[in-house]
Amino acid sequence: MNKFQDNTFVTSLFKSIPILVLFISVFNEFDANYFQIEYLSFNFSYILIFFCTLKNIDHFGYGLIFCAGIINDVVTGLPLGISSLSFMLICVATSYFRSITLRPTLIRDWMFFLITISLVNSIKFMILSYIFGSLINYKYLLVNNFTTFLLFFFFSFIFNFYFEKFFGKSDV
């Protein structure tokens, strides 16, 4: 049950937290992608975008995700538009998955997340490699992909807890 059903402003604020978190994560130079620890790097933005677009959360618009992608590119120094395209491809995947799934389960979402990020990362790094001539560290790429996949399960619990605690259901 929605805890703030009487207060539309607070409801709106709590619903906006995921998009704010996304913007903070892309604006902030502290990036989970580039931890200094070997075998610990993950793409938090992918997890958040996949989860929120799959659950069709309010205030988590495609336009804002697109802007977040542009900001991410500028901050990380990637060619402009690359992250936006990756984020949009994740949105396409979640939109498709939402329309073909009748009874969603966490395990199914998790497996589909692996396929999605693998595909999106492949497209992203193909563009970086073939068009922009960047060198690709395959070991880093695989570790990042796999860690992101593993951590999705953990973050799903946190996000589900957040939405169920404050709004009584996971898709608001």
Partner: peptide, 9 residues
Amino acid sequence: LIILSIIII
């Protein structure tokens, strides 16, 4: 938005 991203790239 995907087309826009490609145009920006």
